[in-house]
Structure formats: structure tokens, C-alpha cells
Design a binder for these strands. Structure first.
Length: 347
DNA sequence: AGTTCGGCACTGATAATGTA
DNA sequence: TACATTATCAGTGCCGAACT
């Protein structure tokens, strides 16, 4: 279950796919069987209440309507399964929010985020094609132990957690191993946005170190992998991670860069038959106020030699406030419909 | 209106704590 | 001690808020 907005976006497309261009005029009784029992009355009511709150949902509905008339498999569709309501398994990540005519459909509303992997999975597991890992030590500790220690020490003093009852360990290593991180996280949050300058400076210094180190780690593993027998596996992982491709083809639609869009994303095998990676670069970006690594992926079509440079960037940051767990958010810097290997479904 | 830094909801695992 | 319950945390899904 996601937010009401996300669910409403998905359902708006779903109603459109079923041919309803005025979702609010449809009763639950009518629509319930058409969603194959995947939409309960409570969710239906939430949808009805949320739909009028933003004209974006009407756009989403239109995407569904247009898909129905312009994509042959969806013509005359009278059954759509809504799968966005329940959580996907972590490993078999066939991205899908809806399922129509056995084709998974993923809905996106104005989001540049491609994925939200842990830094370890982005910078270590992906360029090695290895399995997703869990329970790794903090990426800040991994890539910038000294700078992290300095930042931590300052934060500890700043919040008064260096003395007294709630004192946190002196070494970040210990702090990271402990199960008592909340007091510091909360204390930092309570400071509001008004940190002393030195706090910000120490943070930036650490971030720059992390960016550099992360980019290096990625490049090192990648160049090693590309020369080895696991080359194929690694390229598949990269295609999966960066282009959201999967074992089966699916429809990605929604709103991207202010425009309604729908594309058909090929399955990995097909893609690898026609396209190849020419060059993959990870470049630390030191101009930002948080850790950022830019990615540039050059792909070429094997037969036409058509080349496309896809740009991304990853933001390494704490996902629940400073000193919480770390994420490596991956952003695209293009629109999905710009990619020459995603076939655009005309809307 | 685009960019920049950031947040929340949820899951599944495991530690911490409560209770018989 | 042995088991049940709760709290915390990492990881990943979804964008948001606020500044330029």
C-alpha cells in the first residue's frame, strides 16, 4: 500500500483501461468485477474522494483511455487486475501496478526516481552482477570512516549526547553497531534546519569523500567484471537497475516531464540482442550539498549503430534523517519516451 | 517551473524487553 | 528459562517541499 496519491494514480489509469472516462460516475458494484476482485470497497471510496483533488488524476485516466484505444492488446479489455495494492517481492521485481491482458503495467506520476537501492547494492553488487546484499555496515562508514567520525563527534557534542545518561558511543563504528541510534537521530531533527556552519562543513567534507570513493568503487568493480566471464550477468544487472528492464516486457505509463506518456519496455533478452553498452561511467559530483555520483551510459544499436547517451545521478543520503540508514537514490535525467529502445505507444 | 535536498509508508528481520 | 510481544532498523517503494 502506498500513499492515496499513488493508489489514485494507478486506479485512474485502471479505470481508463477499462473504458471509463468518467470514473466518478461508476458505482462500486459495476466496477468491482472488472477489477477481478482486486479493488475493495474501502479503496474504491478512497479513490472516489481523492480523484477530484488534482487534475493530474484526470490526465492519468486519459492515459488509460488512450492506451485502450491505441494499444492493440488493450482494445476491448474488460478485466484489469490492480496489483499496486500489495507489496511486490523483493527479488522478483517485475514492476507492475496493474495487469491487463497478461501484460504488466507500471504507473509513474512525475517522478525522476528510477530506483532506491542501498548504496552497497548500487555501487558494489550491481557492477559485479552479484546478489543483492542486506545488513551491510553504513555506507558512510565504508567509504569515509575518518570524515564520518569527525562529523559524528561534532554532532554528538552539538546535541549534548557526549555526556549524561543518553550518551552515545565515542566511535561511530560502535554507534553504527548499536541498536540505539534513535536518540541522536531525534536530537538532530530537533535542531531544525539551523545547524552551525561547522556542522554543515563537516557534513559536506564527508559527502565529497563518499562521492569520490563510491564512484571509484563502482568503476573498479565494473572494469574488472567486464573483462571476466561474468560480463553478461553484469550488463543485465545494469540494464535492470538503470532502465528498469526485466525478464518480461511491460508497459510503463503516466506523466513524465509534464507530458502524458506510455512506452513498451522490452524484455532483457530482446534488448541485449539489439543493443549494447558502449561505455559506462561513474563520476563523483562534488558541487552538491550532499553526496552525488553522476552516471553516463552510452548505448548503441548493434545494426543501425544509433547511439544514445543516458545520464543519471545517484544521491547518497540518509533516508530517515541524519545518522539513520543510507540509501542510494538513482535519478534519470531524461524522459522515458526519449529512450530509443523503449517503443513509444502513441497516446 | 526546474532543481535541490529531503521525507514518508511499508516490509521483513532481529534485537530488546516483557511475562509466565 | 522460555517464549511472546514490541521496538528498532535497513532497505526500497512512492514522490514532496522549498528554494531559486
Amino acid at each position: 500500500m502506498a500513499t492515496a496519491k499513488t493508489e489514485c494514480s494507478e486506479l485512474s489509469v485502471g479505470f481508463g483501461l477499462l473504458g471509463y472516462d468518467k470514473p466518478l460516475e461508476v458505482s462500486f458494484k459495476q466496477v468491482h468485477p472488472k477489477f477481478d476482485n482486486t479493488l475493495n470497497e474501502e479503496k474504491f471510496n478512497t479513490f472516489v474522494n481523492t480523484y477530484p483533488s488534482d487534475i493530474m488524476f484526470a490526465s492519468m485516466n486519459n492515459v488509460g483511455i488512450r492506451l485502450r484505444s491505441n494499444y492493440k492488446s488493450f482494445r476491448n479489455l474488460n478485466l484489469v487486475r490492480w496489483t499496486g495494492g500489495d507489496r511486490q517481492a523483493a527479488t522478483t521485481s517485475t514492476a507492475k501496478d496493474l495487469l491487463g491482458a497478461n501484460i504488466p503495467i507500471s504507473v509513474k506520476a512525475e517522478s525522476r526516481v528510477v530506483g532506491n537501492p542501498s548504496p552497497y547494492n548500487l555501487f558494489v553488487a550491481t557492477p559485479q552482477g552479484s546478489a543483492q546484499a542486506q545488513g551491510m555496515t553504513s555506507w558512510y562508514l565504508e567509504t569515509a570512516p575518518q570524515a564520518y567520525q569527525e562529523f559524528y563527534a561534532f554532532a554528538r557534542k552539538l546535541t549534548g549526547l557526549d555526556t549524561g545518561m543518553n550518551t552515545t558511543p565515542e566511535a561511530v563504528v560502535e554507534f553504527e553497531l548499536s541498536r540505539r541510534k534513535k536518540p541522536l537521530i531525534r536530537a538532530i531533527k530537533n535542531l531544525g534546519e539551523h545547524y552551525p556552519q561547522e556542522f554543515q562543513e563537516l557534513y559536506i567534507r564527508m559527502c565529497q569523500k563518499v562521492s569520490q570513493s563510491s564512484a571509484e568503487i563502482f568503476e573498479n568493480y565494473l572494469s574488472k567484471s567486464l573483462k571476466s566471464r561474468i560480463r553478461g550477468a553484469v550488463l543485465e544487472r545494469i540494464a535492470k537497475m538503470f532502465f528498469r528492464m526485466n525478464a518480461v516486457e511491460y508497459v510503463l505509463c503516466g506523466i513524465d516531464g509534464k507530458n502524458e506518456f506510455a512506452v513498451l519496455i522490452p524484455d532483457l533478452t530482446t534488448w541485449l540482442q539489439t543493443w549494447q553498452f558502449e561505455d559506462i561511467k561513474a563520476i563523483p559530483n562534488l558541487e552538491k550539498e550532499q553526496s552525488v555520483v553522476d552516471f553516463e551510459i552510452l548505448c548503441t544499436n548493434k545494426t543501425t549503430k544509433h547511439a544514445y547517451l543516458a545520464k543519471f545521478h545517484a544521491e547518497i543520503r540518509w533516508s530517515h534523517g541524519k545518522f539513520s540508514s543510507v540509501e542510494g537514490k538513482l535519478y534519470k535525467e531524461f524522459n522515458w519516451s526519449d529512450l530509443p529502445f523503449f517503443s513509444v505507444i502513441p497516446l
